[in-house]
Nucleic acid binder design. Structure first.
Lengths: 190, 190
DNA sequence: ACAGCCATGTAACTCGTTACATGATTAC
DNA sequence: GTAATCATGTAACGAGTTACATGGCTGT
């Protein structure tokens, strides 16, 4: 049982990359990584370049994507597109997989949990730093969201990316509120 | 360079477990896992039992924790407590590590991103299922939060765990809002 | 010339998981 | 007597990371 690699369930990141190839264009590994950095990173992960290439290799072997080699500028590039089988597999995954719970890896919350180990000034500094990072991430995501305007209505190309972007913005708002609330509790002089 | 295991930075999960040992009691690996399931799981991870034991082994070798073997009931148990060196290392980590950004692994948001691959009814079903799970998680966390009442004032034992619990509850509220908003956008008949 | 981006990969390694194995104590 | 819980580990494995290696094209 289970020797055949076709039996093994794909890691979610494979489906994520497959999903990025459903938006119409053929992408190089490099471009795929850029797309992932724009969108996926907020809800899933930004896979390393090396992983993008190895996932593409796997997906090609499973014939879920097709590669075409170009020699555009004298520079060798390989573009990938999703196959009909890839679409089927992706759709099946989306239809049949249970929702699954979100996982938060939150180093700031983790360290707040053990706040008694350091003094409150240290913890406040950490929270303030985190607020900056949340602000930066939110403004990145807001830019993405704005770039989708005009194609975010029902039936249009970027409806669903727009919906998730709104979800993400809400999340960052909540993070900011939570960090500010914690700072207040810690008697932030500001 | 870097052959000595004492040079290598510990994984964050090591610090997390070390942190759980700063709340006063000596714990067995089994109990540590239970504590992690109650608190850590909401902000970091629930390490597998086997990982708890292997982390404890490593921390013991680094003399950041000390083990004492008991034979309480005829059943062999090993209890662990943090050492002075362990406290130092933990404090240094908490004081010097940059805040670090939170990572969200959100299978539901990921699948919403590719909503155009399936029909909206499928996506709505996923969101509804997720709402149930959020509700369950929140009620678990609410219970934890309630159990801290009476020891959550400044200077008391569970002040910081209470602060993070409030953070987590806020997060779940935000998740519920976001999921409901997405459902409305998808014309949820409810 | 030189930096920065585009483009593709390999190798080594670690974290963390699942499956497996063992056995004692407690509750029904 | 048997199921659940307490308690401790080993082994195999996979996902994903960092470091390394290569080279062409673009702008200054």
């Amino acid at each position: 049982m289970r020797q055949d690699p076709h039996d093994r369930p794909l890691p979610v990141t494979s489906y994520a990359l497959l999903g990025l190839l459903t938006f119409g264009d053929e992408l190089t590994g490099y471009e795929l990584k850029q797309r992932a950095d724009i969108t996926l990173r907020f809800y899933w992960v930004s896979p390393a370049m090396s992983q993008v290439y190895s996932e593409l290799k796997r997906l090609t072997e499973l014939t879920l994507v097709e590669a075409s080699d170009d020699l555009d500028d004298g520079r060798r590039t390989t573009r990938y597109r999703i196959t009909a089988q890839g679409r089927e597999v992706l759709e099946a995954w989306m239809s049949t997989t249970p929702a699954g719970f979100s996982t938060l890896k939150h180093p700031v919350a983790l360290r707040l949990l053990m706040g008694h180990v350091v003094d409150d000034a240290t913890t406040r500094a950490m929270l303030t730093e985190y607020l900056d990072e949340v602000g930066a991430a939110r403004s990145d995501l807001r830019e993405v969201r704005e770039s989708l305007r005009g194609a975010d209505a029902p039936g249009e190309a970027f409806r669903y990316p727009a919906l998730v972007a709104d979800w993400g913005l809400r999340h960052f708002d909540s993070e900011e509120d939570a960090a500010r609330a914690a700072l207040r509790e810690l008697g932030d002089p500001g």
